[in-house]
Design a binder for these strands. Structure first.
Lengths: 126, 126
DNA sequence: CAGAATCCGTTTAGATACTG
DNA sequence: CAGTATCTAAACGGATTCTG
């Protein structure tokens, strides 16, 4: 039996930088958008295809959030016909690796997750 | 310039197992709770200390969610004085590594994130 | 094409008080 | 100690409509 350290008195404070991650990527679309930009810049309408459940509003909102965090850049071409391109910044790219790790984990374990979910019964008294 | 693959027609569908991750851990407390259980079982009240911004309701809700996913186990001792203990299941433990990766990323880059956040200005017209 | 604006229902979170 | 119950405020998400 190992000696257990007491828990820090305010983990929320202490892990703020990391709890910022779920804060920023925990929303419904951010992670998916990042993955859409994995192999090159994409245009607004191009992003809507694989995420066809997203409304333009939410996509804009998501993109703005990612821009604000410095993860995605937006380039409006002089020629409007060329559209607007979104791309990962180097910072955004650096997030890919840990994100893949999480995705791999999920891919490996999602059956277990599902099983657990179905096997679960609310609560047996006593 | 590399050849860009067309994006899959429904990434939401395709990444469902992985988008399940933000779904399940994207909430405000799950990740933090998991980290609180890193080095051993903890009791309900013990968990409230480092997460003192959490209300009992939210903590219960979070723990139930993690239980339902098979990531956390709950043990009510026969002797009520011993309280109720929550612990990571093996599945829960297996999540630690990818989670650390993400935390490390955040720890490394949160200054950049903050800077980007402050430097950001809503949108320059034209 | 790339959004912005508005409306509105749903979900989520927090405060507070109470219980076995 | 380990929650539950209730209520309210705020955030989120989607549908729809409109514009440079």
């Amino acid at each position: 039996m190992t000696v257990r350290q007491p828990l820090p008195s305010d983990l929320f404070e202490e892990l703020c930088p990391s709890s910022m991650v779920p804060f920023r990527f925990g929303d419904k679309w951010s992670a998916l958008v990042i993955r859409c930009l994995e192999d090159g810049p994409r245009r607004f309408s191009e992003l809507r295809v694989p995420l066809h459940r997203v409304t333009p509003k939410m996509l804009t909102q998501t993109l703005r959030g990612l821009e604000r965090s410095g993860l995605v850049s937006r380039t409006a071409h002089a020629d409007p016909a060329l559209g607007v391109e979104y791309a990962l910044t180097p910072l955004g790219r650096s997030l890919l690796k840990p994100m893949w790790a999480l995705c791999d984990w999920a891919a490996e374990h999602w059956e277990e997750l599902l099983e657990a979910h179905e096997a679960y019964e609310p609560r047996r008294l006593a």
